[in-house]
């Protein structure tokens, strides 16, 4: 961890237009759930979470956060200002991840939990919050690693979420074993049986930890070999 990098990454996130897009998601989610819950009842609003909040809004927030703290700097090469310093590359990656993680928690997980409370609360709300926290943590590290590898990080991350986890995950139950969202749900299932039980618990825990730690480590490793190329 490096306090200066954390500060710079936070400024990069807050100082750009995409911050407003990031902020739009939680507002939208909470407002929608609250409206539906007010007009009907909490149970009618609940399907918004497994249908929209958890599989779409949460990963989108994580994609935006992770690619904002690293993507533009890798894209235009200005990351060399950070890398031409005697600072451990893994410390840089971890610092960036911490900022992306915090943004995901605030703009993705927290509103999801608030929405779950609005839609009735109880065990299932706590479970949904835990599931989102686990998935948000793993997502932010995974997308950070993708941002360190390719300039098309956003679209690659979206492919993973929407096509692999979403489209294929709905058709093939085996995808659950390689799906961040499903691991989170499996861990949440321990708290509330209303959440599905797609894999087994040790696997969900292990896989979440491995993706989180591996993603952050891999991003640092890519930074260690960062090459400055001409315009291409």
């Amino acid at each position: 961890m490096n306090a200066t990098i954390v500060k710079l990454a936070a400024q990069a996130l807050l100082g750009r237009r995409r911050f407003w897009l990031l902020l739009a998601f939680p507002v939208l989610l909470v407002a929608l759930t609250a409206t539906v819950a007010a007009l009907t009842d909490g149970d009618a609003a609940w399907p918004l979470l497994p249908g929209l909040g958890y599989p779409v809004v949460l990963p989108l927030v994580a994609v935006l956060a992770a690619s904002s703290v690293l993507g533009p700097e890798v894209d235009d090469g200005s990351i060399v200002y950070l890398l031409s310093k005697p600072v451990n590359r893994h410390a840089i990656a971890v610092s960036k991840w911490v900022v992306a993680w915090a943004a995901t928690m605030l703009a993705g997980v927290l509103p999801l939990w608030v929405s779950a409370l609005v839609a009735g609360g109880g065990d299932r709300a706590t479970a949904a919050g835990i599931a989102a926290a686990v998935a948000g943590t793993a997502y932010s590290a995974l997308f950070l690693a993708i941002s360190a590898v390719t300039r098309h990080a956003v679209i690659v991350s979206l492919l993973f979420v929407l096509i692999w986890e979403g489209l294929l995950g709905n058709l093939l139950s085996g995808v659950a074993w390689l799906s961040v969202a499903q691991w989170g749900l499996r861990i949440g299932h321990e708290l509330s049986p209303e959440l599905p039980d797609p894999t087994n618990l040790p696997w969900a825990l292990l896989a979440s930890v491995v993706v989180t730690a591996g993603g952050a480590w891999f991003a640092g490793d890519r930074l260690r070999s960062f090459s400055l190329r001409g315009e291409d």
Partner: peptide, 29 residues
């Protein structure tokens, strides 16, 4: 990098920092 100072050709994309903040960040790093 303790002994190297690098001035890349690439433009700064830290437009949201002041000149002092930017130099200070480098000193802190």
């Amino acid at each position: 990098y303790r002994r190297i100072g690098l001035v890349p050709e690439r433009e700064l994309s830290f437009g949201y920092l002041t000149g002092r903040q930017f130099v200070r960040a480098n000193a802190d790093l």
